[in-house]
Amino acid sequence: MACTRDKQQVINQYLDEEMTLLESKQFEEHLHSCPDCEKHVRELKKTTAIIQSASHFEAPKDFTAGVMDRLPKQSKTKRWQQWIRRHPIVLTAAVFFLVFVTSLSAGFGAEEEIVVRGDGHFIINESERTVVIPEGSAIQGDLFIRNGDVEVNGEVAGDITVVNGRHLQASSAQISGDIEEINQTFEWLWFEMKTLWNDAVPFLTPASEEE
């Protein structure tokens, strides 16, 4: 044991390295002259060395799996949310597909208004959903009709495209270009893509431009 109760405190300070250099030098001098304190310090140093030599144990191999198995089960929606969070590309694709389908059905809906694109004189009959090109009038260029039939009695300089409708042709009609009826979704799709392609890269199709 330490020679005095006070020295017991000092020994702890010494071992915890809570002394200034001078203080520890002074205490070490005391240790040289005091066998009790010297023995006490030696034994404590040995004790901590023994404890520190204790080997470290590792957790058993199946430890993590054991913990994960015992975690509370998550609800299906939560797991689904997690899955989406980790696979954002799927969400992007899904949204894109949704927008795509919506625009398609919008472009193909039966209740849509008649749309006519063309340069010239024509008559739109809303109740019968028919576009009439009267005799004697001419359309300069292409004619595009969506959601309605077209009756051509006059002259059309370019192509006629009818989406979601039919075309009727009088004997007096003069159509310089092709006539195309598009009544099915995939055809519509194909047409849209063709148009987009032609709009995007007009330089690739100079021949049709010049016609």
């Binding site: 470290h56 144990f57 590792e58 957790a59 058993p60 430890f63 993590t64 913990v67 994960m68 975690l71 998550q74 939560k78 949310q81 997690q82 969070r85």
Partner: peptide, 20 residues
Amino acid sequence: RGNQDAFAELVDLYKDKVFH
């Protein structure tokens, strides 16, 4: 955030010390 699988990584990081 609710990612249960991520917890396995935490367990792996600290299991040895906690077990010891």
